[in-house]
Design a protein around this nucleic acid. Structure first.
Lengths: 405, 405
DNA sequence: CGCTTTTCGCCGCGCTTAGGACAAAAGGAT
DNA sequence: ATCCTTTTGTCCTAAGCGCGGCGAAAAGCG
C-alpha cells in the first residue's frame, strides 16, 4: 500500500471501464444507453469509454439482430464485446487424460480436445503433448494465438504458491519441476496454475451447481479426495496455496498408513482406490473404481455398501469442514461423485449427525453439474476471472511468465 | 451546495479519505508529510483531506510532544485523530465474569471495568449488570455517551447471524434470546455481537501475536475449544456466522458423548473440564482447571501428562484445520493456553506429524499475547473495524443507490 | 548572518465525470 | 406529405479532484 503510484485518477477510469465491460458481458448486445442505465454512469462517460474500447478493438458494432421493435425513437447503435478480442485457454492434466479448451471472453467455450494417456505419464511428455493439443485446437478454430490472454493449468495434487509442485504422489513425475514456467516457455503465454479441486470449485461456482452462493466448497471424490473453497466468488487458497486438502483429514489416529505419511487419512477409507481394493480383496477379483460404480448401479449389494460406507466416512470430514468453514453449499464432483444418492445420502446423514446443528442446517449438499469438464472449465475460469480486459494499459499476451497467482 | 451528487468522484475522494484516516490510526501522531509518504498520495491531496477532517472536528493539532530532534528543517505541524471524536465500547460476557472497556478511535483503551459473577448467571441479569458497568465506566472517564459510535459484545458460544444465540450449552440462559437487540435497547446504542473465539482472533490479529499476518487462526482453549479465523484482516464468519467451531471436530467416531450431541468431539478429550475431571477421577480429589495448570507448573507429572495429551489431541484437529485453511499463523489463547510449552510443544509436534507437509511448514503456532483481555479488546475491535470515520459526515447511508437489473 | 533542510499553503494544469444542448433517426398523428 | 414525439448518440462546458511546482515559514548549522 505504499509508494506505488496507482495514479488515482486512472484508477477511477479503470473502475468505470470495468463496470462497462461487466455490463457488456452481462447484457451481451447492448446500446450505449443500455449500458448507462445498467451501470448508473452518465451517457457521456459510457460513450467515452466505449470509444476507447472501440479504438482498442475490444468492442464491435452489431448491425442489429432482431429486436428493432422497441418503440419509437432513434434506433440504438448496438455494440458487443468482440468475442475474438481475447481468448482464454485451459489445460487439464488428469491422471490418465489430457484436455484443452478455448473460450472467448463472453465465457463461451469454443472448442475442446481430449486425449487419453498412459497411467502416470511423465510431466515433460505431458506438457509437450499439451502444447501440441493447444496448437491443433487453435488451428482448428482458426483462432489468433496473439489474442490468447492467458492459460489456466489444472494439476492434480498440491500446488505450492512458490511454483514447484509439492510431494504429489498422484503424479510423481511432476515433483520438483515448475510446470507453470515450463508451460509458459513452451506456449510463450502467461500461465496460471491451480489444483484440480480448486478449479472444479471455480467452475461449479461460476457455471454449475454453486451458482449464486456466496460460499461454495467443491468436493472432488476420485482416487484422491480434495476440496476447493470459494468465498465471495474468489478462490480461497490459504497462505501457501494448499488450502482444501480434506483428503488427509485424520479419521482414525491408528488407521492405515496413507501415501502422505500420516495414518488413518480419509483417503485410506474413502478414496476410489481404497474402495476398489477393499472390494477386490473381498470379491477375489480385480476391480477398478469404474467397475464398482457400474456394479453398484446394477444393484450389487457389496458395492452399494462400500459406497455408502465411503459416504459416511467422507461425511465425518465434511462435518468437520462445516464446523470450521460453515459454507452455504457443498458441490460433490469427481469420478466417485457420479455414484449419486448411493453415496450422497449417507454423506448427508453423516453430516447432519456430526456437524453442530447450526452449521449442518446452513449447508446444502448437491451433486456437481459439470462432470468431467469441471477441471477444464475451471482452468478457463482461472483466466477469465482475472480477464485483463478491464485494464486498458495493454501488455495482454507478451512472453511475461506471470506464474505468481 | 450546487454539485450535490458528484457520484464517482466522491467515491475516489472517499477512498483517499479512508487511506488518510487509516494512516492516522496507524501512525498515531503524524505530520501531513508523514501521511503523504505513508499513503503514497501527494502532499497537496493530503493537505486538502486533512483540512476537511479538521473542519469536521475529527482531527486536532498536537502541540508536538517530545520528538523535536528529527533533523533540521521546518518542524512539522503534528496532527492526530481527535480521541474525543468517537469512542468504541466493548462488553465481554464470560462464564464467570463480566467486563467492559472503552477505547478511543486511536485504538487506545481508556478504561476497563470487571466484575466476577456467579456460574451460569442469567442472561437478563448479566445484561443489566453490563449496562450498569457501562454507565459507571462512562461516568468515571467523563466520556460523552453521545460520541460512542458502537458497542461490541462478546458471547461464549455460537452466534447465529440471524440474531438469537443457538444451543449454547455454556450459557444456557442465553438460548433463544436476542442479546444484541436487548443490549441495544438497554444502552440505546448500536450493538454488534461476536463469539469469544472470533473476538479473540480479531484482537490478536490487530494488536497481538497475529499482527502483520495475512491469515490468522486464533485458538481459544478453555472449558470449550473454539477458533476464530481472520483472513486479510477480516473476520471470516461463514454463511451462518458459525465458522471456526473446531471444538466439535470428531476425533474418535466411537468416543464419549459430547454436549453437542455428537460423539468423540475434541472437547470431550481436551476441553478444560474434560482434563480436570479426568485428573479428579485419578487423583481422587476434586480439581478444577486452574489447579491443573498450577500443579503442572509446579512439576506434577500427572498434570503435565494430561496437558501434553490434550496438546496432542488438539494437534489432530489443528492439523485438519491446517490442511483445510492453510493459515499463516495460529495464535493459542484461552485459559488453558497459559500452560505454555507444556501444551504447545506436543501440539506443534502433532501438527507437524499429521498435517500434509506443505501446510505444516507454512504455519507458525505461537502463544497469544493478550491473555484474558483478548475477548474484551476484540469486542472493541469489532466496532473500530467498521469505524465509519472514513466516510465523510454527509450522506452516510445515502450513497447506496444501486440500480441493478 | 546566511545557507540548508524540511514542511506547509496556494495556484495552475490535466484528467475525469455529469449534465445540457443539439443533431439524427425512427414511428405516429394530422 | 408534414410535423411532433421519442429515443439515441455526440459535442461542449462546468465542476471536482489529484498532482506538481513555487514560494513562504521555521528551524538547525557553520
Amino acid at each position: 500500500m505504499r509508494g506505488e503510484q496507482p495514479g488515482a485518477l486512472g484508477s477511477l477510469r479503470e473502475s468505470n471501464r470495468e463496470k462497462v465491460v461487466k455490463a457488456l458481458q452481462t447484457l451481451g448486445v447492448a446500446s450505449r444507453a443500455d449500458i448507462a442505465r445498467w451501470t448508473g454512469l452518465s451517457r457521456s462517460t459510457v460513450s467515452s469509454i466505449v470509444g476507447d474500447l472501440h479504438d482498442e478493438g475490444l468492442v464491435g458494432d452489431r448491425q442489429d439482430g432482431g429486436r428493432e421493435a422497441s418503440g419509437s425513437g432513434r434506433p440504438p447503435a448496438l455494440i458487443a464485446l468482440d468475442p475474438a478480442a481475447g481468448f482464454a485457454l485451459g489445460i487439464d492434466f488428469g491422471k490418465r487424460h489430457l484436455a484443452v479448451a478455448l473460450a472467448d471472453l463472453s465465457h463461451e467455450v469454443l472448442g475442446e480436445q481430449r486425449v487419453e494417456m498412459t497411467d502416470d505419464y511423465e510431466a515433460g511428455e505431458g506438457m509437450l503433448r499439451a502444447a501440441e493439443l493447444v496448437d491443433r485446437l487453435l488451428d482448428d478454430l482458426d483462432a489468433d494465438r496473439g489474442r490468447v490472454i492467458g492459460v489456466g493449468m489444472g494439476i492434480p495434487g498440491p500446488v505450492h504458491r512458490t511454483g514447484p509442485v509439492g510431494s504429489s504422489a498422484i503424479l510423481p513425475g511432476w515433483s520438483g519441476t515448475s510446470p507453470a514456467e515450463r508451460m509458459a516457455d513452451l506456449l510463450e503465454l502467461p500461465v496460471r496454475v491451480g489444483n484440480d479441486a480448486n478449479l472444479g470449485a471455480l467452475a461449479e461456482s461460476t457455471w454449475g451447481a454453486g451458482r449464486g452462493s456466496a460460499s461454495v466448497v467443491y468436493l472432488k471424490l476420485a482416487t484422491g479426495i480434495g476440496a476447493g473453497i470459494v468465498i465471495a466468488g474468489r478462490l480461497f487458497e490459504g497462505a501457501g496455496g494448499t488450502a482444501g486438502e480434506i483428503g488427509h483429514t485424520t479419521i482414525n489416529e491408528t488407521g492405515d498408513i496413507c501415501r502422505c505419511g500420516n495414518r488413518g487419512c480419509l483417503e485410506t477409507y474413502a478414496g476410489a482406490a481404497a474402495i476398489a481394493s477393499l472390494l477386490s480383496r473381498s470379491f477375489g477379483e480385480q476391480l477398478d473404481p469404474e467397475d464398482v460404480l457400474s456394479r453398484a448401479a446394477q444393484g450389487d449389494p457389496g458395492c452399494r455398501r462400500a459406497l455408502a460406507d465411503a459416504g459416511r466416512h467422507i461425511g465425518v470430514a465434511v462435518a468437520n469442514l462445516c464446523n470450521l468453514v460453515n459454507p452455504e453449499r457443498i458441490v460433490v464432483g469427481g469420478s466417485m461423485g457420479r455414484a449419486g444418492a448411493l453415496l450422497l445420502d449417507p454423506l448427508r446423514e453423516s453430516v447432519t449427525l456430526r456437524a453442530i446443528p447450526s452449521a449442518g442446517e446452513d449447508v446444502r449438499i448437491v451433486p456437481g453439474e459439470l462432470g468431467e469438464r469441471a477441471e477444464l472449465l475451471g482452468a478457463v475460469a482461472l483466466v477469465l476471472q482475472e480477464a485483463s480486459l478491464a485494464q486498458g494499459g495493454r501488455t495482454p499476451a507478451l512472453q511475461t511468465t506471470e506464474t505468481k497467482p
